[in-house]
Computed example of a mutant assay.
Amino acid sequence: MGSKNKLKRFTENETFKNVIQPKREEILAGNIDLKGNWKRHFGNNKPLVLELGCGKGEYTLGLAKQHPEKNFIGVDIKGARFWRGAKTALEANLENVAFLRTQIELIDLLFDESEVSEIWITFPDPQKKYKRTKHRLTNKAFLDKYARILRPGGLVHLKTDSGFMHGYTLGLLHGLGYEIIYANHDVYKNEGSPPSVTGIKTFYEIQYLEEGKPITYIQFRIS
């Protein structure tokens, strides 16, 4: 994507009512009015669901269409990517969708305790190298952050094409004693996966399937 295209998308994002872009210094200073009050943005008190690392927002949109009884926020630092999802949501009049531009390690500074109902982590970078462990979105430090903002009994979903990420997360969850509700190493070949897993396919997921890569899924509780 050219720099002019990116600049155009950044400019458009600033005009979109469904895009929230707090500055890092504001987050660190605790100057986030929506923290603990995200229902004000949506105008209702529906359960709040996050997709972390939402990319172009395809999964966030898919979930929002499947579940109009919930509100969804796609979270990513790359605004030029989720521009497409935000624009599509506005064009489709999807009122239960928003996009938040921030780094995921700041997530517990943007949502209050027990404010979030569910978290989706879809096709994250597995960060295979040991020195990159701290960047894996299911490492203990991140799980602790999620636990702080999730309501009691809140769900976390991990959907990935990485067998490494799937195995790493399962092992960590077992070691920490967290409740694993459902785990599947090939959701399209085994029955029983929720419609929210098999009923939504992103652009890259379709490519993975064409290459014969199995798609894995874990649903678990950490709070």
Results as ranks from 00 to 15, higher is better:
residue 33 D to N: 10
residue 93 N to K: 12
residue 121 I to N: 05
residue 33 D to W: 09
residue 57 G to D: 05
residue 193 S to L: 03
residue 66 Q to H: 13
residue 64 A to Q: 11
residue 215 I to S: 01
residue 54 C to T: 10
residue 194 P to W: 08
residue 30 G to W: 01
residue 220 F to P: 02
residue 41 H to I: 11
residue 132 R to S: 14
residue 220 F to N: 03
residue 110 L to I: 06
residue 219 Q to T: 03
residue 62 G to L: 01
residue 73 I to A: 08
residue 162 S to W: 06
residue 157 H to K: 06
residue 96 N to E: 02
residue 188 Y to H: 15
residue 45 N to S: 15
residue 78 K to A: 14
residue 7 L to S: 14
residue 80 A to G: 13
residue 37 N to H: 15
residue 17 K to I: 09
residue 139 N to A: 09
residue 186 D to E: 10
residue 151 R to H: 01
residue 153 G to C: 05
residue 3 S to C: 07
residue 29 A to K: 10
residue 147 A to R: 13
residue 142 F to H: 13
residue 64 A to F: 11
residue 199 G to A: 12
residue 47 P to S: 09
residue 60 T to D: 06
residue 170 L to M: 12
residue 208 Y to M: 12
residue 17 K to Q: 11
residue 100 L to H: 00
residue 163 G to N: 09
residue 68 P to D: 01
residue 202 T to M: 09
residue 168 Y to K: 10
residue 94 L to S: 04
residue 12 E to N: 11
residue 73 I to Q: 03
residue 106 L to K: 02
residue 117 S to G: 00
residue 76 D to N: 10
residue 102 T to R: 01
residue 175 G to Q: 12
residue 44 N to V: 04
residue 191 E to K: 14
residue 58 E to L: 05
residue 25 E to Y: 12
residue 167 G to D: 15
residue 97 V to I: 07
residue 86 A to F: 06
residue 115 E to A: 03
residue 156 V to A: 08
residue 40 R to T: 12
residue 120 W to C: 01
